[in-house]
Computed example of a mutant assay.
Amino acid sequence: MTRISSGTRILSISHYQPSRVLSNDDLAAAVDTSDEWVRSRVGIATRHIAAEDESVADMAASAAAKAVALAGVDTADIGLVIVATSTAVDRMPSVAARVARRLEIPSPAVFDLNAACAGFSYALATAALAIQGGSSRIALVVGVDKMSDFLDWQDRSTCVIFGDGAGAVVVSATEGAEPDGVGPVVWGSRPQNGSAITLETTGPAGPPALFRQEGHAVYRWALTSLAPVARQACERAEVAVSDLAAVVTHQANLRIIETVTKQIGASGAIIARDVVDSGNTSAASIPLALSKLVERGEVPGAAPVLLLGFGAGLSYAAQVVACPPAAQVHSRRSTT
């Protein structure tokens, strides 16, 4: 049997955010908090919240449709659709299948992937491996979450953190001698500490599932474990940390972002801080933040960018990617 081996590249990137913006002052009217309290602890000023009737699939399809259009590919050539999410309400069909149907992608492999806030990085790595192995030539990868459906809006330690949104990329095989645009992934988990972040159901007769986390435990884990993973991803991609154009971590918390990126040593890189405006959008946070950086012209096309996802499980994944050009970046926001 012949194994087809190919490099991979990101052709396009896009993002979607709901139109409703919730400020810290808005939250302070409903829960015991304040703008100063939230900013000093997590660095967040605003977040976007989806409408009650706006689903995970709606947001995913909005981001995905624009990414596909910008990539200039025929939907018939998309052989794989992966949606990273942990907040899909329905079990079947998958969000990926629903996105494929809406975009009229005729016969792709479709599945959802749940690695929580590390989900996009896991999905991107999985798509790259599928392309490198010859199973697909073009893949659509979406990170999306509607965390607002699973928040305790009376718990100020968690309800102030999250927002809703989606980000999508189109990934393809490289052509000829074109350099690889998605570096090797460094991934893993610390499952023995998985109870630090949960969104657990109690059955049809029990209370609704709500997000819970042991914030201090997660903070300590992030600050002691993630920088070595990021540096290893740079080594595997044969990219010096000093040569990174940008670092896009999961947008969990501004203090975590700034401390971990300082530990990595990428002093000359642009650091994504979309958490300030968007909150923690879970699996959507990395593509959403990267899309905005490129849209604003802060990262040139083909420049090396370090992606670092981490979240429940406690799971993590890091890879270096070549940034798509600014002409192939677009955002979409609802007008309803």
Rank of each mutant, 00 (worst) to 15 (best):
E52Q: 12
L210W: 02
S55R: 14
Q192Y: 13
R101Q: 14
A222W: 00
T87P: 04
I49R: 02
V329L: 08
T46W: 03
S34C: 09
V275E: 05
H15M: 12
S135Y: 13
P208F: 06
A84R: 14
T75A: 14
A51Q: 10
F211H: 06
T158S: 15
G203V: 07
V38S: 07
G163R: 05
A269G: 13
T75Q: 12
E235K: 08
G133C: 09
V239P: 04
Q328N: 12
V239M: 08
T33F: 09
T85A: 11
S5M: 10
V89P: 01
P300N: 03
G215M: 12
R41D: 07
Q319E: 11
V320M: 06
S19L: 14
G165W: 09
S23Y: 11
F211Y: 14
Q232F: 00
S282A: 14
D277R: 15
L223Q: 00
A125K: 00
A125Q: 04
D26C: 06
D25R: 13
V229F: 09
D180G: 13
D74A: 14
A61F: 03
S148M: 08
T8P: 04
R273Y: 02
I264N: 01
S107R: 13
P304I: 07
A302H: 11
G163N: 09
A289Y: 01
A60S: 12
K262H: 05
V83L: 08
Y219G: 04
H330N: 01
A28I: 09
G188R: 10
P184D: 11
L27M: 15
A51V: 01
L314V: 11
R9F: 00
V276D: 07
